[in-house]
Protein backbone atom coordinates (compact mmCIF):
# COMPACT_ATOMS: atom_id res chain seq x y z
CA UNK A 1 0.00 0.00 0.00
CA UNK A 2 2.83 2.32 0.89
CA UNK A 3 4.02 2.23 -2.72
CA UNK A 4 1.03 4.25 -3.87
CA UNK A 5 2.27 7.25 -1.91
CA UNK A 6 5.84 7.01 -3.07
CA UNK A 7 5.85 10.31 -4.96
CA UNK A 8 8.00 12.73 -2.91
CA UNK A 9 10.09 11.01 -0.28
CA UNK A 10 9.42 12.78 3.02
CA UNK A 11 11.07 10.22 5.19
CA UNK A 12 14.28 11.48 6.69
CA UNK A 13 15.52 8.14 7.97
CA UNK A 14 16.76 5.28 5.90
CA UNK A 15 14.35 2.83 7.46
CA UNK A 16 10.74 3.60 6.72
CA UNK A 17 8.76 3.72 9.94
CA UNK A 18 5.02 3.34 10.16
CA UNK A 19 4.77 6.33 12.46
CA UNK A 20 7.34 9.03 12.45
CA UNK A 21 7.02 12.14 14.57
CA UNK A 22 9.64 14.83 14.61
CA UNK A 23 9.51 17.51 17.31
CA UNK A 24 5.74 17.45 17.41
CA UNK A 25 4.17 20.37 19.28
CA UNK A 26 0.53 20.91 20.04
CA UNK A 27 -0.57 24.17 21.60
CA UNK A 28 -4.02 25.31 22.44
CA UNK A 29 -5.37 28.60 23.62
CA UNK A 30 -6.57 28.85 27.17
CA UNK A 31 -9.33 31.32 27.82
CA UNK A 32 -10.41 32.90 31.08
CA UNK A 33 -13.99 33.24 32.30
CA UNK A 34 -14.75 36.14 29.95
CA UNK A 35 -13.52 34.23 26.94
CA UNK A 36 -10.37 36.30 26.58
CA UNK A 37 -7.11 34.63 25.68
CA UNK A 38 -5.35 33.78 28.88
CA UNK A 39 -2.31 32.03 27.49
CA UNK A 40 -1.12 29.07 25.50
CA UNK A 41 -0.85 25.57 26.77
CA UNK A 42 1.59 23.15 25.26
CA UNK A 43 -0.11 19.82 25.64
CA UNK A 44 2.52 18.08 23.54
CA UNK A 45 6.00 19.54 23.55
CA UNK A 46 8.62 18.51 21.01
CA UNK A 47 7.80 14.84 20.96
CA UNK A 48 9.68 12.62 18.54
CA UNK A 49 8.64 9.04 17.90
CA UNK A 50 9.70 6.26 15.57
CA UNK A 51 7.40 3.29 15.50
CA UNK A 52 7.87 0.45 13.03
CA UNK A 53 5.28 -1.93 11.63
CA UNK A 54 4.53 -4.69 14.15
CA UNK A 55 5.76 -2.82 17.24
CA UNK A 56 3.85 -2.98 20.50
CA UNK A 57 4.37 0.30 22.27
CA UNK A 58 2.91 1.36 25.61
CA UNK A 59 2.61 5.04 26.43
CA UNK A 60 2.45 5.71 30.16
CA UNK A 61 1.86 8.96 31.92
CA UNK A 62 -0.21 10.60 34.63
CA UNK A 63 -3.54 12.29 33.82
CA UNK A 64 -2.96 15.43 31.83
CA UNK A 65 0.50 14.42 30.63
CA UNK A 66 -0.48 14.91 26.99
CA UNK A 67 -0.67 11.25 26.01
CA UNK A 68 -4.27 11.40 24.76
CA UNK A 69 -3.54 14.58 22.83
CA UNK A 70 -0.59 12.86 21.21
CA UNK A 71 -2.80 9.88 20.34
CA UNK A 72 -5.34 12.11 18.59
CA UNK A 73 -2.56 13.29 16.27
CA UNK A 74 -1.83 9.80 15.06
CA UNK A 75 -4.99 9.63 12.95
CA UNK A 76 -5.20 13.32 12.17
CA UNK A 77 -8.04 14.18 14.55
CA UNK A 78 -5.65 16.89 15.74
CA UNK A 79 -2.95 18.52 13.63
CA UNK A 80 0.43 19.55 15.02
CA UNK A 81 1.06 23.23 15.78
CA UNK A 82 4.74 22.68 15.02
CA UNK A 83 6.78 19.74 13.85
CA UNK A 84 5.72 16.94 11.55
CA UNK A 85 4.08 13.57 11.81
CA UNK A 86 4.14 10.98 9.06
CA UNK A 87 1.83 8.01 9.07
CA UNK A 88 2.91 5.34 6.63
CA UNK A 89 4.65 8.04 4.64
CA UNK A 90 1.67 10.42 4.67
CA UNK A 91 1.87 13.86 6.26
CA UNK A 92 -1.05 14.15 8.72
CA UNK A 93 -1.57 17.79 7.76
CA UNK A 94 -2.29 16.80 4.16
CA UNK A 95 -6.08 17.08 3.86
CA UNK A 96 -6.18 14.84 0.79
CA UNK A 97 -4.73 11.97 2.75
CA UNK A 98 -6.93 12.24 5.80
CA UNK A 99 -9.13 9.23 5.05
CA UNK A 100 -6.18 7.07 4.09
CA UNK A 101 -4.54 8.00 7.37
CA UNK A 102 -7.63 7.16 9.38
CA UNK A 103 -7.90 3.85 7.60
CA UNK A 104 -4.28 3.08 8.43
CA UNK A 105 -4.44 4.03 12.10
CA UNK A 106 -7.54 2.87 13.96
CA UNK A 107 -8.53 4.31 17.32
CA UNK A 108 -10.16 2.72 20.32
CA UNK A 109 -11.26 5.04 23.11
CA UNK A 110 -11.80 4.80 26.83
CA UNK A 111 -15.57 4.64 27.12
CA UNK A 112 -16.97 1.77 25.03
CA UNK A 113 -20.49 3.23 25.19
CA UNK A 114 -19.43 6.44 23.50
CA UNK A 115 -18.04 4.74 20.42
CA UNK A 116 -20.88 2.37 19.59
CA UNK A 117 -22.85 3.20 16.49
CA UNK A 118 -25.55 0.68 15.83
CA UNK A 119 -27.95 -1.20 18.04
CA UNK A 120 -26.63 -4.65 17.30
CA UNK A 121 -23.04 -5.77 17.41
CA UNK A 122 -22.47 -6.52 13.74
CA UNK A 123 -23.96 -3.19 12.63
CA UNK A 124 -21.43 -1.44 14.80
CA UNK A 125 -18.54 -3.45 13.39
CA UNK A 126 -19.75 -2.71 9.86
CA UNK A 127 -19.83 1.05 10.42
CA UNK A 128 -16.27 1.82 9.30
CA UNK A 129 -16.20 -0.33 6.14
CA UNK A 130 -19.61 1.11 5.22
CA UNK A 131 -18.13 4.58 5.50
CA UNK A 132 -15.21 3.52 3.35
CA UNK A 133 -17.58 2.38 0.61
CA UNK A 134 -16.54 -1.27 0.77
CA UNK A 135 -18.65 -3.71 -1.24
CA UNK A 136 -21.52 -5.25 0.85
CA UNK A 137 -20.28 -8.79 0.43
CA UNK A 138 -16.80 -7.85 1.57
CA UNK A 139 -18.22 -5.89 4.51
CA UNK A 140 -19.92 -9.03 5.72
CA UNK A 141 -16.67 -10.97 5.41
CA UNK A 142 -14.71 -8.31 7.24
CA UNK A 143 -17.28 -8.13 10.02
CA UNK A 144 -17.14 -11.88 10.45
CA UNK A 145 -13.37 -12.16 10.50
CA UNK A 146 -13.02 -9.17 12.86
CA UNK A 147 -15.50 -10.68 15.29
CA UNK A 148 -13.68 -14.02 15.12
CA UNK A 149 -10.39 -12.31 15.93
CA UNK A 150 -11.78 -10.77 19.12
CA UNK A 151 -13.73 -13.96 19.92
CA UNK A 152 -17.13 -12.28 19.79
CA UNK A 153 -18.69 -13.96 16.74
CA UNK A 154 -21.39 -15.69 18.78
CA UNK A 155 -22.60 -12.28 19.99
CA UNK A 156 -22.92 -10.74 16.53
CA UNK A 157 -26.69 -10.32 16.84
CA UNK A 158 -26.60 -9.11 20.45
CA UNK A 159 -27.44 -5.63 21.59
CA UNK A 160 -24.27 -3.89 22.86
CA UNK A 161 -26.11 -2.70 25.96
CA UNK A 162 -26.45 -6.32 27.10
CA UNK A 163 -22.70 -6.98 26.95
CA UNK A 164 -20.10 -6.61 29.68
CA UNK A 165 -17.56 -3.79 29.56
CA UNK A 166 -14.80 -6.09 28.34
CA UNK A 167 -17.01 -7.45 25.60
CA UNK A 168 -18.08 -3.97 24.50
CA UNK A 169 -14.48 -2.90 24.27
CA UNK A 170 -13.64 -5.98 22.17
CA UNK A 171 -16.47 -4.98 19.83
CA UNK A 172 -14.92 -1.55 19.56
CA UNK A 173 -11.63 -3.21 18.62
CA UNK A 174 -13.42 -5.35 16.02
CA UNK A 175 -15.02 -2.20 14.62
CA UNK A 176 -11.57 -0.75 14.03
CA UNK A 177 -10.14 -4.05 12.73
CA UNK A 178 -12.78 -4.09 10.00
CA UNK A 179 -10.94 -1.14 8.41
CA UNK A 180 -7.91 -3.43 7.99
CA UNK A 181 -5.62 -0.92 9.70
CA UNK A 182 -1.87 -1.28 10.00
CA UNK A 183 -1.87 0.24 13.44
CA UNK A 184 -4.35 0.46 16.32
CA UNK A 185 -4.09 3.14 18.96
CA UNK A 186 -5.91 2.35 22.20
CA UNK A 187 -6.47 5.31 24.50
CA UNK A 188 -6.90 3.91 28.02
CA UNK A 189 -9.11 1.09 26.77
CA UNK A 190 -9.32 -0.61 30.17
CA UNK A 191 -9.80 2.40 32.45
CA UNK A 192 -13.51 1.75 32.90
CA UNK A 193 -13.34 -2.05 33.09
CA UNK A 194 -13.16 -4.56 35.91
CA UNK A 195 -10.14 -6.90 36.21
CA UNK A 196 -11.86 -9.61 34.17
CA UNK A 197 -12.66 -7.15 31.37
CA UNK A 198 -9.10 -5.84 31.43
CA UNK A 199 -7.70 -9.31 30.96
CA UNK A 200 -10.02 -9.97 28.00
CA UNK A 201 -9.05 -6.75 26.28
CA UNK A 202 -5.33 -7.09 26.89
CA UNK A 203 -5.44 -10.67 25.62
CA UNK A 204 -7.20 -9.49 22.45
CA UNK A 205 -4.66 -6.71 21.94
CA UNK A 206 -1.70 -9.05 22.35
CA UNK A 207 -3.23 -11.50 19.88
CA UNK A 208 -3.59 -8.73 17.29
CA UNK A 209 0.05 -7.90 17.67
CA UNK A 210 1.37 -11.46 17.75
CA UNK A 211 -0.87 -13.09 15.17
CA UNK A 212 -1.87 -10.28 12.80
CA UNK A 213 1.33 -8.26 13.24
CA UNK A 214 -0.69 -5.09 13.76
CA UNK A 215 1.22 -2.24 15.32
CA UNK A 216 -0.21 -1.49 18.76
CA UNK A 217 0.02 1.75 20.68
CA UNK A 218 -1.46 1.23 24.11
CA UNK A 219 -2.01 4.31 26.22
CA UNK A 220 -2.57 3.40 29.82
CA UNK A 221 -1.80 4.22 33.39
CA UNK A 222 -2.07 0.66 34.49
CA UNK A 223 1.52 -0.45 34.94
CA UNK A 224 0.74 -4.17 34.81
CA UNK A 225 -0.59 -3.81 31.25
CA UNK A 226 2.55 -2.13 29.99
CA UNK A 227 4.64 -5.18 30.88
CA UNK A 228 3.63 -6.89 27.63
CA UNK A 229 4.86 -4.08 25.37
CA UNK A 230 8.09 -4.19 23.35
CA UNK A 231 8.79 -0.62 24.32
CA UNK A 232 7.46 1.93 26.78
CA UNK A 233 7.36 5.67 26.38
CA UNK A 234 6.68 7.64 29.56
CA UNK A 235 5.14 11.07 29.09
CA UNK A 236 4.84 13.88 31.56
CA UNK A 237 3.93 17.52 31.03
CA UNK A 238 3.89 17.06 27.27
CA UNK A 239 7.38 15.58 27.05
CA UNK A 240 8.63 12.08 26.60
CA UNK A 241 10.65 11.68 29.78
CA UNK A 242 11.61 8.02 29.66
CA UNK A 243 11.77 5.30 27.05
CA UNK A 244 12.98 1.74 26.83
CA UNK A 245 11.92 -1.85 27.23
CA UNK A 246 9.57 -2.58 30.15
CA UNK A 247 12.49 -4.10 32.01
CA UNK A 248 14.58 -0.98 31.56
CA UNK A 249 11.83 1.47 32.40
CA UNK A 250 10.52 -0.43 35.40
CA UNK A 251 13.95 -0.76 36.92
CA UNK A 252 13.99 3.03 37.34
CA UNK A 253 11.50 3.02 40.22
CA UNK A 254 12.42 6.39 41.71
CA UNK A 255 12.34 8.17 38.36
CA UNK A 256 8.87 6.76 37.67
CA UNK A 257 7.67 7.93 41.06
CA UNK A 258 8.95 11.42 40.32
CA UNK A 259 6.63 11.33 37.30
CA UNK A 260 3.58 10.42 39.44
CA UNK A 261 3.73 6.81 38.30
CA UNK A 262 4.52 3.56 40.04
CA UNK A 263 5.78 0.16 39.01
CA UNK A 264 3.85 -3.12 39.04
CA UNK A 265 3.53 -4.52 42.59
CA UNK A 266 5.88 -7.42 41.87
CA UNK A 267 8.52 -5.06 40.52
CA UNK A 268 8.05 -2.89 43.58
CA UNK A 269 8.59 -5.84 45.91
CA UNK A 270 11.70 -6.87 43.95
CA UNK A 271 13.02 -3.32 44.17
CA UNK A 272 12.41 -3.19 47.95
CA UNK A 273 14.23 -6.49 48.41
CA UNK A 274 17.15 -5.29 46.34
CA UNK A 275 17.31 -2.04 48.29
CA UNK A 276 17.38 -4.10 51.49
CA UNK A 277 20.53 -5.77 50.22
CA UNK A 278 19.32 -8.94 48.52
CA UNK A 279 20.87 -10.00 45.27
CA UNK A 280 17.90 -9.42 42.98
CA UNK A 281 18.28 -8.23 39.38
CA UNK A 282 16.71 -4.98 38.15
CA UNK A 283 13.39 -4.77 36.36
CA UNK A 284 11.68 -7.95 37.54
CA UNK A 285 8.28 -8.13 35.82
CA UNK A 286 6.58 -11.36 36.83
CA UNK A 287 5.97 -13.34 40.01
CA UNK A 288 7.82 -16.30 38.54
CA UNK A 289 10.97 -14.26 37.86
CA UNK A 290 10.83 -12.83 41.37
CA UNK A 291 10.40 -16.19 43.10
CA UNK A 292 13.24 -17.72 41.12
CA UNK A 293 15.49 -14.76 41.86
CA UNK A 294 14.71 -15.01 45.59
CA UNK A 295 15.39 -18.74 45.70
CA UNK A 296 18.73 -18.21 43.93
CA UNK A 297 19.89 -15.44 46.23
Amino acid sequence: MGVAYAAPIFILNDIMNLLDANKLVFEYVRRDKNGDVDGFIRAVDEVSLEIAQGDFVAVLGPNGSGKSTLAKHLNSILRPTEGVLYVDGMDTTDSDKIWDIRKTVGMVFQNPENQMIGTIVEEDVAFAPENMGVDPKEIRERVKESLITVEMLEHRKASPSKLSGGQKQRIAIAGVLAMHPKCIVLDEPTAMLDPEGRKEVIRAIRALNDVENITIILITHNMEEAVYADRIYVMNKGHIVMKGTPREVFSRVEELEENSLTVPVVTKLAYELKTAGLNIPDGILTKKELCEAICRS
Binding site: I77, F109, N114, Q115, N131, M132, V176
Partner: peptide, 15 residues
Protein backbone atom coordinates in the same frame (compact mmCIF):
# COMPACT_ATOMS: atom_id res chain seq x y z
CA UNK B 1 -20.78 11.70 24.99
CA UNK B 2 -21.72 13.55 21.81
CA UNK B 3 -18.21 14.92 21.56
CA UNK B 4 -16.63 11.51 22.16
CA UNK B 5 -18.93 9.91 19.65
CA UNK B 6 -18.16 12.52 17.00
CA UNK B 7 -14.44 11.82 17.35
CA UNK B 8 -15.04 8.06 17.31
CA UNK B 9 -17.14 8.37 14.14
CA UNK B 10 -14.55 10.49 12.38
CA UNK B 11 -11.86 8.05 13.42
CA UNK B 12 -13.86 5.37 11.68
CA UNK B 13 -13.87 7.35 8.45
CA UNK B 14 -17.39 8.77 8.71
CA UNK B 15 -17.87 11.65 6.27
Amino acid sequence: RANDLAIAMESRCYR
